[in-house]
Amino acid sequence: MLLGGIQTAVSLIYPPQCMSCGGLVGSDFGLCGSCWAEMYFISGTVCEGCGAPLPGEADGFRLECDSCLRYPRPWSRGRSALLYEGQGRKLVLALKHGDRTEIAYMAAAWMERAVQPLLGDNPLICPVPLHWTRLLKRKYNQSALLAGSVAKRTELEHCPDLLSRFRRTPALEGKTRDQRFKHLCAAIAAHPSRKERIKGRTVLIVDDVMTSGATLSACTDACLQAGASEVRVAVLARVTQA
């Protein structure tokens, strides 16, 4: 009773706010109606390679988007929770660059729904790594926050330092696909003390955004070289123009 009274008092003093615009909402970690209307969640028929939405109905065969057909992925399957547009893009940028780490808690619920088809064989969950200099500057790895939250919600094994980015690469925003792949070539590898955890395992790599797939490809290659039996990927948002 006492705890309930304290929570009620706190909610009166600090009412829940929309995670995007700051407007009042009914519960913590939620969005107001206006912001929710500008979220483009992915559902229905999707690409098996990256989770991008596809027209039509699933026919029992593997379906892939034009991008995945043009550039075959080294991973087996992928899923995305939403499109990198509207309020979704705003939230991703706030999580990545705006110190809005609390967004990861809300976003993990969306990702949990999207990744259900990828959870067979109890995959080992890991994030896309940051180089230590960028981590020092940013203070956190947004992909690690998402991976940890998804692992907690799905009750799956999680290794936040399974992969290491041992070579610093330039920011990839604005780079072409070829430039992205060139910069990331041989930049990511399995952490030397974590290779035994990868051998023979299915690995699920988590990231915030997929554009060209260069970063996820580098991570997948690192896992496969370390002996992973299969690699799957899950991202919060997909850039469909890539």
Rank of each mutant, 00 (worst) to 15 (best):
L3Y: 04
Q7N: 14
T8C: 15
S11Y: 06
P16S: 10
G22F: 14
F29E: 13
F29S: 06
G33V: 04
A37W: 09
M39G: 00
M39N: 01
G44H: 04
T45P: 09
E48L: 09
G56E: 09
G56D: 06
G60P: 03
F61S: 14
L63D: 05
L63S: 08
C68N: 04
R73M: 12
S76N: 06
L83A: 01
G86V: 13
D99H: 04
M106T: 13
A108L: 00
W110G: 00
M111Y: 02
A114T: 06
P123F: 07
L124S: 09
W132M: 13
L136H: 11
K137A: 15
R138S: 05
S143M: 10
L146K: 08
L146Q: 08
A151E: 11
E155W: 11
R165K: 15
F166H: 15
P170S: 07
L172E: 06
L172V: 11
L172Y: 06
K175Y: 07
K175Q: 11
R177K: 14
K182T: 11
A190V: 04
S193K: 13
R194P: 08
K195Y: 10
E196P: 04
K199G: 00
R201F: 02
T202L: 01
T202A: 10
V203N: 07
L204K: 00
A214Y: 09
T220K: 02
D221C: 05
A226C: 02
G227A: 02
R232M: 11
R232P: 06
L236D: 00
R238Q: 03
T240P: 02
